[in-house]
């Protein structure tokens, strides 16, 4: 059951990512990205991270991608033209991807910790447990990240308001 869901949504995720790369129209790309984000949420759910899955859908599929499509709609962006990329990119691209994928696969398969032996559906992390880690053990990094995002927002507003 878990494995079937994993395969279905894993394939959906990869299919969405490939579609994102090969489509010409920005709105098709944005929609493929939504499919990728939402399938990732299901994969998180299979690993027992229910809060993370919901947050993934609310924040990424919901808010951020709505802003993406909003901007595409506002600019009324048309299809992109195909350009002839550099010869170096063509020569190095595919082998490079293969190398990175191989390296990642090797690293994951050579893991020996408890995380490597876990099966799908083994864990169920409650929201309470997650927030205890987030607000007790990792309080400082969490707050520092929040401040970092705040600084980014202030910076964006300062840059945007410079004209006036």
């Amino acid at each position: 059951m878990y494995l079937a869901l994993f395969i279905v949504f894993g394939l959906l995720c990869i299919g969405g990512a490939l579609n994102l790369l090969f489509r010409r129209h920005p709105i098709d790309c944005a929609l493929s990205l939504i499919v990728v984000m939402t399938s990732l949420a299901v994969l998180y759910l299979l690993l027992g991270a229910e809060f993370l899955a919901a947050a993934q859908v609310i924040v990424y599929s919901g808010a951020i991608m709505v802003l993406f499509t909003f901007v595409i709609m506002l600019l009324n962006a048309g299809s992109e033209e195909r350009t002839h990329g550099s010869a170096a990119a063509y020569a190095a691209g595919m082998p490079g991807i293969a190398a990175i994928a191989g390296l990642l696969a090797f690293l994951f398969l050579s893991q020996n910790g408890p995380a490597a032996k876990a099966r799908l559906g083994d864990y169920e992390v409650s929201t309470g447990a997650l927030s205890r880690v987030l607000f007790r053990d990792l309080l400082l990094p969490f707050e520092v990240t929040s401040v970092l995002i705040l600084v980014a927002i202030v910076g964006a507003i300062a840059l945007a308001g410079k004209e006036h």
Binding site: L31, T38, A54, V57, I58
Partner: peptide, 20 residues
Amino acid sequence: NIGLLVILSVTSVGVYGIAL
């Protein structure tokens, strides 16, 4: 377990219907 978040996430995806 996360029933409330499920409702919120489904609503947040629903806006695509209107936008698209």
